[in-house]
Nucleic acid binder design. Structure first.
Lengths: 348, 348
DNA sequence: TAGCAATTGAAAATCGATTTTTTATTCAAT
DNA sequence: ATTGAATAAAAAATCGATTTTCAATTGCTA
């Protein structure tokens, strides 16, 4: 008869018993620590394989006080930008033998706080976060810091919070987009913006303003419309503007969804794009390549941004840790680039 | 001077000390177990709040042997179908006070196996998985079972594996799509399929065949093309077919990306959709609503599918567990529905 | 009021890996 | 040959919550 319980998880104690070693030696062997001989290491590893041993993260985390896990919180995963950012983070985590776990805030502050709590309980080593639409301040991230969890904000960030931050060059990108429209001969360029409590939208607006200033364009105040991030609202606002006695001949929108809304508006009004009206969006969503006409937009180099965010943890924060000094806050800027497609190309 | 170390995580021992209780009582109070009085529960909870206590999952998981966590593995998160499925799973997990952690296989078998290993180490209670493109058999999931982790496959499944399974009514949906095309008067309906080692694509093909049979259509063998899931290949294959001396007048494709490829092909050849050629795709991706013309497709009720998958764990598997009998395998089918848009509407 | 059950709380064992401390061994050098 | 350092493995302590076992108190009944 078997002495073992029918099937309990195999532990290092079982391996120790099977090899006649001490559990501590088994642990060290499996972790390739120097204080155990090559012979033993080989022996232990073979036995572990044979017994179908699996490392128990909970036990190790508890003892170590670190989970070798990074948690990422994004508003939504089915947005091209965030999915790509996460892909970049995954790569870097994998290279460093860390796990990445993902939570969605679904643009709600409550869920975002919930996610932070979960990550504290799970004892992640670092939280990478892009704030939800509802979130006005990153105050709740203090809880994470209080529990010794590092925090890196990306894209939608609260600069006032004072921690590490990675963002696109939103102002410069918007400037370039609008300058491109001006270069194509569009003169009456309207702006469809986002919620003004989010820095990224304020920055994009600034870029727009700088460009229209430099090009010395006359912009009626009606052309500048905040809070029209989604397709429906944008369509409505664009329709109103296009029916105006002095209608715009181009739109720069802070999201691709808004650009799509403008496209629908023009289509409904039988206005030709790009001949009569030019459009440039922001984010390089998948669908921008398949509309008719295809939409010009800003590519945020999202995967690279994700890589840099994770890298910030491994190569800046983690390196400084042993020294004890808390790694002074970094603010990194990722360059984005204009993708010119049909919707803004009047001069062929 | 302070006696406490500057800042270590607050534990139930600290609360015990602060309240003069035993750690065990604190634990029971926090978990609302019956063997502790209301008075003590209130006292403990207040103190925990005051001391900014956070539950330590690692410690609890270790002791409990369960992590109250479900792991989901999908090929890609930035696919509308999977993102929606995950949203459904999240809801159900949240309702049951469980966590959901997400891994991507990026359509590679290696990464899929890696994800399973991670979940075993993390000791998740259940794995919900949709197989990668590369995966030919679910054999590697045996490892999870061997470690007492429940497995539910969804969408891309290996029926041969024998466990719990949730799928769409792929055959019926394809049948309906093709019947719809026939009803619209299209007679020469071509089929752009997927990899034949995946059941879902075999099923969709069967539905197509059944429909063309019943409508008594003559289909040259060239009309049936497997392995053209993505836009580029589909565009190429469609172009070839459309230049054929006896070209098809409609396409049913097993993915929306392929449908997009067909649309590009027709557009390049100046063929009018839906007047000259009808198109129906599969999956109801976001972009299908914004192409010109908009694409007809199959909606898979993905969020509901996700809810059901998670529900299968909580209401079927978990319920049976105490009894010891291992919950006989379930195969659940989620009905999908045809979404008729412009690309297949010839009769207005 | 004695006797017994039902509550309520404390004590101690436990989960499995890591890490620090000890002990035992090897080997070189004086 | 003996001290000493260097190496290798064992022993023991530890992480923090849960759970089982045990003890004490309360309350109720006869």
């Amino acid at each position: 008869m078997l002495l073992q319980k029918p099937d309990k998880r195999v532990t290092i104690h079982d391996i120790a018993r099977a090899t006649g070693l001490a559990p501590s030696s088994v642990s060290k062997a499996l972790n390739d620590l120097p204080s155990v001989s090559k012979r033993i290491k080989a022996l232990v590893k073979a036995k572990a394989e044979e017994m179908n041993y699996r490392h128990n993260s909970s036990a190790a985390n508890l003892r170590r006080g670190s989970s070798r896990t990074i948690g990422v919180i994004v508003p939504k995963i089915n947005v091209a930008f965030f999915a790509d950012v996460i892909a970049g983070m995954e790569e870097v985590c994998f290279e460093n033998d860390y796990r990445l776990i993902i939570c969605q805030s679904h643009e709600e502050l409550d869920k975002e706080i919930q996610a932070v709590e979960t990550f504290i309980e799970q004892n992640v080593d670092c939280i990478l976060i892009s704030l939800s639409q509802q979130t006005r301040s990153a105050e709740h991230l203090k809880q994470a810091l209080a529990h010794h969890i590092q925090v890196v904000q990306f894209d939608r960030v609260d600069h006032h919070f004072g921690g590490h931050v990675i963002v696109n060059d939103n102002k410069a990108a918007a400037y370039e987009a609008v300058k491109h429209l001006a270069d194509q001969g569009y003169r009456r360029i309207a702006f469809l913006g986002g919620a003004m409590h989010l820095q990224i939208y304020r920055d994009r607006k600034e870029g727009y303003l700088q460009a229209v200033n430099e090009a010395d364009l006359d912009i009626p105040y009606q052309y500048i419309v905040d809070d029209s991030r989604n397709a429906e609202i944008a369509m409505e606002k664009a329709t109103t503007l296009l029916k105006y006695r002095n209608p715009p001949d181009a739109f720069f929108t802070v999201t691709d969804h808004a650009a799509l809304g403008v496209l629908k508006a023009t289509s409904a009004l039988k206005i030709k794009v790009p001949q009569q009206v030019g459009i440039v969006g922001f984010a390089n969503e998948t669908f921008t390549a398949v509309t008719s006409p295809t939409l010009s937009t800003i590519d945020q180099q999202s995967k690279m941004l994700g890589r840099h965010a994770a890298d910030l943890y491994f190569n800046h924060i983690l390196k400084k840790k042993p020294a004890g000094n808390p790694a002074q806050p970094v603010c990194e800027v990722i360059q984005s680039r204009l993708v010119v497609r049909e919707s803004s190309l009047r001069n062929l």
